[in-house]
Design a protein around this nucleic acid. Structure first.
Lengths: 168, 168
DNA sequence: CCTTGACTTGAAGTGGACTTGAAGTCGTAA
DNA sequence: TTACGACTTCAAGTCCACTTCAAGTCAAGG
């Protein structure tokens, strides 16, 4: 292996756009691996850049670093993935992305409906979503900033300003 | 104002799906307001539920609570918004949502391309994105979990496993 | 030899969004 | 009267993804 097949943390940082501290942090989590120079400096095979890019993409999908670690575990750390490996990973990410986009599109359509219908107090939205959504979920549903698909946010509907007469 | 026009924190929590502690926290940030009973208990006008729903929606758009506070500042805390008020807010959120969806769709199309082209080492992706993206951004770009539009994530391209011969 | 720059480590700090805990208050019901 | 449940406050804790800091090491250049 030639020496210039290998890059140091500074170059990885520069080329990936991540801080060196972040790379060390990722390494501490096992997301990436390094070899060392005689002096203890980290060296990375060039393709760590791909792995880092995958991490960044996965973050945009809303995965936590822990989940990313699990996902990347199916990819070899030391060489380019096979077509099958990559296809498996990318398809599962693709599905995740589809879900996320669909969720946002649903939100957009709700929002658009509420702009369009001009229901100032949002009362008319009851038309779209007549059921009481409360009590269908527990408290303290911890959620991350990125939308999680399982996250249930009550719709605009049934938040009537009218005193709840149709109590059930 | 009749007593049953007003709800207590427990009911708001139950109906909104948020923990009471979260509601108190929001109040401490000025996102919602409460009146008090003689005994010091919080009471909310029923339409606080709408406001809380708006907060949740805004979070799904990726806004921080601080940004949400600014956005909600244009809405009256104590009554239903006028059509103009609501339209202004919802249109700006709609734009934000459009951006977010567009960003995710761009990501999806990149990902789809990379699944489709079968470029195991991702080398061929260079075709799509031939320029070196490194050095165009500084380090330590703090970003939040939700994708920020200004966030530049280097594409899969140019992360070649090939030693960088076309150096520039 | 000395400096410089790139790197090392481990520990502590940051920011956002809450939650948890401890100790106390209020109103009703037995 | 006492107990209970729903609430109060304030401080501290938690989680995630990092960053910052202090103190040290190493190789190359002048």
């Amino acid at each position: 292996m030639r020496a210039d097949d290998v890059i140091r943390i500074g170059e990885v940082a520069e080329r990936s756009g991540l801080a060196a501290s972040a790379l060390r942090f990722y390494e501490s989590l096992g997301l990436i691996r390094s070899d060392r120079t005689s002096g203890g400096g980290r060296t990375y095979p060039r393709h760590v850049l791909r792995r880092v890019a995958l991490i960044r993409i996965a973050q945009r999908l809303g995965l936590t670093l822990e989940e990313i670690g699990e996902a990347l575990a199916i990819l070899p750390a030391d060489r380019a993935p096979t077509k099958a490996e990559w296809a498996k990973l990318s398809r599962s990410w693709r599905r995740r992305l589809d879900d996320r986009i669909a969720a946002l599109e649903a939100l957009r359509s709700d929002l658009t409906g509420c702009i369009g219908c001009g229901c100032l107090s949002l009362q008319r939205c009851r038309l779209y979503n007549p059921d009481d959504i409360a009590s269908t979920r527990g408290p303290s549903a911890r959620y991350l900033l990125g939308d999680h698909p399982e996250e249930l946010v009550p719709d605009l509907a049934d938040l009537g300003d009218a005193p709840s007469q149709g109590r059930r």
